[in-house]
Amino acid sequence: MRVSVPTIPQAILSAAELSSNAAKTTPAEAAQRIAEFFSPGNVAVITGAGVSVDSGIRAYRGVKGRYLNPNYKPIFYHELMDPSPKGFAYRQRYWYASYLGYLPVREALPNPTHYALAALQYKDVVPNLITQNVDGLHHKALAKVWTKRQMEERMLELHGTLHNVHCSHGHVTDRDTFQDWLSATNPQWKAFADNLEATGQKPRTNPDGDVVLEGVSYDDFVVPECPTCLMEGRHNRTQKPELIFFGESIRPEVRTRSYEDITSSSRLFILGTTLATFSAFRLLKHALDLHKPVLMLNLGPTRADGLSGVEKIEMESGEVMREVVRNVLGSDDATVNEMLVSGVIKPPPEDGEIDS
């Protein structure tokens, strides 16, 4: 299964615009309905970029389902790994943008939706969570109450993570160390990044941790060599983060586990995603094939709109998820109560429409 560039059929986008004046569900009504859906337990959850918007990480699409940045041009896996000089230029382009964009993602904190889902996981209402996000914020929300092993067993990062890097020979480096290597081999870019921070300038950061800069040359950007490869007697600057690029295949074990997580659940809850990426959409289709109840919480059109068996609530998750947890779990657990008063609300600047 290769990840293709996400799309939402034009018919769905057009229908959404025509129905934009339809009656809206109130937050109280939405919280009650979602709580009813969660109350039986054993609910699998799929999350997308919309969940992290309140943490300051911009989504790719806005409430109309269209790309917020019309000039967005993703780098494909075959381009990034191309051993030719052209591939080297693609790696320069990716790593300069990721070098500047990683810090905001690394410093981001979980928001109320992350903590609400963490509470439902902590109390075993949600045995399995599948996220398309690569920011690690679901993990941060559970870091005080779960071990790393528990998080690995109960959360699946469908598209990988920004927090590790590996070379083309499989040698893994944690991202903070790799970030230091990038600073050491690119002192002029380190100075540029320091100046951006000192002057309060914040380039537009995408959810995959890269930035958009216009009119900037990256011809002098140096991608560091893999030190393990050097010790083994080879030069290797082909390095990539442990996330799935467009055109790259999801690892078989991840694909298999994602299906198993849906199969073992009794129902499926989806939030903060348009499901434009087929790797997530196929999991919805799998749940529908198994006749599992499906409830979706998202503001704006999605690839699932109009599918039989999918109930949808048009609303941002931050408006309702805390109240959902209170309705499902009550107020007797001190850890849950702490989670429900935790979380930042710091959305990124608007681009003419609200991210979702």
Rank of each mutant, 00 (worst) to 15 (best):
M1K: 08
S4Q: 15
P6F: 04
P9G: 04
Q10P: 02
A11D: 14
L13H: 05
L13M: 08
S14D: 15
A15F: 08
A16N: 08
N21P: 10
A28C: 07
A31G: 11
F37R: 03
I46G: 10
T47P: 07
G48H: 00
V51F: 09
G62F: 00
Y72A: 14
K73V: 12
G87R: 07
G87P: 08
F88Y: 11
Q92R: 13
R93C: 02
S98A: 13
Y99D: 09
P112R: 02
A116T: 06
K123E: 04
V125M: 13
L129A: 10
I130T: 12
G136V: 03
W146L: 11
E157K: 05
H171W: 04
T173D: 01
R175F: 02
T177F: 13
T177I: 14
F178I: 05
W181D: 15
S183E: 15
A184P: 06
A184I: 09
T185S: 03
N186L: 00
A193P: 07
N195L: 14
R204Q: 13
G209M: 01
G209I: 00
V211L: 00
G215Y: 06
Y218E: 12
D219G: 12
V222I: 14
V222A: 04
V223G: 07
P227D: 15
E232C: 11
T238Y: 05
E242L: 12
L243Y: 07
F245D: 07
V254I: 15
R257Q: 15
D261M: 13
I262T: 08
S264I: 01
S265Q: 12
F269M: 11
L275V: 02
F278S: 13
A280G: 15
L290N: 14
L297G: 04
G300E: 02
L307T: 01
E314W: 09
M315K: 10
E316C: 01
E319Q: 14
E319T: 09
V324N: 13
V328K: 04
G330Y: 08
S331K: 10
D332F: 00
N337K: 07
E338Q: 13
V341F: 06
I345S: 11
S356A: 15
